[in-house]
Nucleic acid binder design. Structure first.
Length: 578
RNA sequence: GCGCCCGUAGCUCAGUUGGAUAGAGUGGCUGGCUACGAACCAGCAGGUCGGGAGUUCGAAUCUCUCCGGGCGCGCCA
């Protein structure tokens, strides 16, 4: 396969005088087996610059190709495709490679140690993760695994938004529930967090805190902006009064208790889902290490900021953003945006060449301004790559399930995992492109219907294991030497198809890596499973003929290996039986 | 209004960055276990790739335009 590319490059070099040397040589897998195993469109691409008909170009290319025992025949087809038919020897060799390389089969060093920081989930620590976060986690984790398998050096990171207004609102919510717990009858603000978990946090906090924290202040709700007409001002006033009533120390104590409790829950939830970020990066720590200050200074030094209306603005429009952005508010506090460019600068300073952010699709407007920030600080804008993950829409009983974090009316990742299992959830989440909306039918998933492809793939794996168990029961052993020498006995259609399919794993993995597209792996595994099931139904592995038996079992073993390797990239188990 | 994303079989979606006759699952219909696991397999039916124009040897894929849907456009995070 590489041989062909090499030969084409030689040809291109030979004609360098006549053609544009930059013309890319392309050799790809064919879709239709009648077109051989590999095909190249090189002749058609060169036809114009060479001023010759494509088929004639193809002929002169073929004449110069070196002989190889791996290539059975070469032909010109259609408008000028060069089709290569590989010898079965080529596939036999590859099959042996699958067995030899084992869990490493498919992996490559294409990434060449390129350092990547992949940030994902980064849900505000104001409540449990919901199903949308689950999709982010499954996607991000699979991409990280795929990148690692293809030679990238990857660090995964969860950005903890533990600073700012959201945390204040959470603290207020908990405190109000504490007051309720102490017997107060108070109107709960519409903008506060009303999930059940807030009550649990409240009762925990009540136990660990000074009892005076739950003394009910008479004036708490007097003269507030209306919750109906200005819920934001209403909330901010309440937060201020809470701070005053409690004192900063007690307020922060509640905040910290709630934060730690929620983070612990998120961490456990993700770990059970097979997702373990290497780093949990605290937004507050940016402040501690003066990162925001430093980033702002950098911008100012470059003349990228100006003052207006008492606030400090960043000239984002100079870098392609649609409007300038505030970095320091009139009240002196820095904005979330300021933290974020500081955070991304800090990522670069940690030595990562590529920063991949896995973000919710609703953050797309955000990409341009962070890129602008990076560029203004002297970092290449291409260093930030954003993968947007579209929303998950849940269906229950054929109807859309409405979700809102604040109202507490949402399905948590934990609930989903309990209902459908980790494997089904993880596969389901990466089965379609991240930029595609995902309809998740809870009833269907709950029913453990075999409509879910996870069972189909796992079943193929379990079937191989079952064959091996039966092999042993019948007193046979598998001999790798005999098997390798007998591979030419595999002449059935299903055997050829499966064998060829297995050898596509490395290139599938590579495509998934380049495109950050785990769904390629998922769909590929489905096809492998399908080819195996077809084979299984048509022929038997455990036959009298020892050579044939060994060869067939080898094919089964290779299938199992590829399924395992693929599933592990997706964080899905490969069960021996089910 | 401006910007980004999406539109492929009745439904849910793939389509390896421009390749040859557009593929799966599911639903519908017809068949297959005295078998190494039937959570499986074989077969039938199902399409103006949202509409139109362009680019070229070649378009679901790239460009433009219209239609339809989602999201964003704060001194919120």
């Amino acid at each position: 396969m590489k041989l062909i590319e090499q030969a084409l490059e030689i040809f291109a070099a030979d004609n360098a005088g006549a053609i544009d040397a930059s013309t890319e040589t392309e050799v790809e897998r064919t879709r239709d087996p009648r077109h051989g195993h590999y095909a190249s469109n090189i002749a058609m691409r060169l036809a114009k610059p060479l001023g010759q008909p494509p088929r004639q170009v193809a002929e002169s290319i073929i004449e110069r190709l070196p002989e190889s025992e791996l290539v059975e025949s070469i032909e010109i087809a259609g408008p000028g495709f060069i089709n290569f038919h590989l010898s079965s020897q080529a596939f036999h060799r590859e099959l042996g490679g699958i067995i030899d390389r084992g869990s490493h089969y498919g992996s490559s060093s294409h990434g060449a140690g390129h350092k990547v920081l992949l940030e994902y989930v980064s849900a505000n620590p104001t409540g449990p993760l919901h199903v949308g976060h689950g999709r982010h986690a499954a996607y991000g984790d699979s991409v990280a695994r795929i990148l690692k398998a293809t030679g990238f050096e990857v660090l995964t990171e969860y950005y903890v938004n533990d600073a700012g207004r959201q945390m204040d609102i959470l603290t207020l919510s908990v405190w109000l529930r504490m007051l309720e717990g102490a017997g107060a009858d108070i109107p709960f603000p519409s903008g506060a967090y009303r999930g059940q978990y807030v009550r649990e946090l409240a009762s925990d906090a009540t136990e660990s805190l000074d009892p005076s924290s739950t003394a009910i202040p008479d004036e708490l709700f007097h003269d507030l902006p209306s919750d109906d007409t200005d819920s934001d001002a209403h909330l901010d006033q309440l937060i201020e009064r809470a701070r005053a009533c409690l004192g900063e120390t007690a307020f922060l104590a509640i905040l910290d208790t709630a934060l730690q409790s929620i983070l612990a829950d998120i961490r456990e939830d993700l770990a059970e889902f097979g997702v373990c970020p290497d780093e949990w990066f605290s937004e507050r720590s940016l402040d501690d290490r003066q990162s925001i200050h430093k980033a702002l200074k950098l911008l100012k030094k470059g003349g990228m900021t100006y003052e207006r209306d008492g606030a400090v603005w960043f000239r984002a429009t100079n870098f392609g953003d649609e409007k300038d952005r505030v970095v320091v508010r009139e009240n002196g506090r820095t904005t979330y945006f300021a933290s974020d460019i500081a955070y991304h600068l800090h990522k670069r300073e940690r030595g990562f060449e590529t920063l991949i952010d896995v973000l919710g699709a609703d953050h797309h407007g955000y990409v341009a301004r962070v890129r602008a920030g990076l560029e203004a600080m002297g970092e290449p804008r291409e260093s930030l790559e954003v993968q947007l993950v579209q929303f998950v829409v849940l269906y229950r009983g054929g109807r859309k399930v409405q979700m809102s974090t604040r109202s507490g009316d949402f399905v948590t990742l934990r609930q989903l995992r309990d209902e459908v299992g980790n494997d089904a959830a993880r596969l389901f989440f990466v089965l379609r492109s991240n930029e595609q909306h995902l309809d998740f039918d809870l009833d269907l998933a709950k029913a453990r219907s075999n409509e879910n492809p996870v069972y189909y793939i796992q079943y193929a794996h379990a079937r191989v294991c079952s064959v091996l168990r039966e092999l042993e029961v019948r007193g046979y052993t598998w001999d790798s030497g005999v098997a390798q020498d007998s591979l030419d006995r595999l002449t059935e259609d299903q055997e050829r198809t499966l064998m060829q399919q297995l050898t596509r794993f490395p290139e599938t993995l590579d495509a998934a890596s380049r495109q950050r597209a785990p769904q390629h792996v998922a769909h590929y595994l489905r096809e492998v499973a399908q080819n195996f099931h077809m084979y299984y139904n048509a022929h038997r592995f455990i036959v009298e003929d020892g050579d044939l038996r060994n060869a067939r079992v080898m094919l089964a073993l290779a299938t199992r290996q590829v399924l395992r390797n693929g599933l592990s990239l997706l964080g899905v188990d490969a069960p021996e039986s089910m």
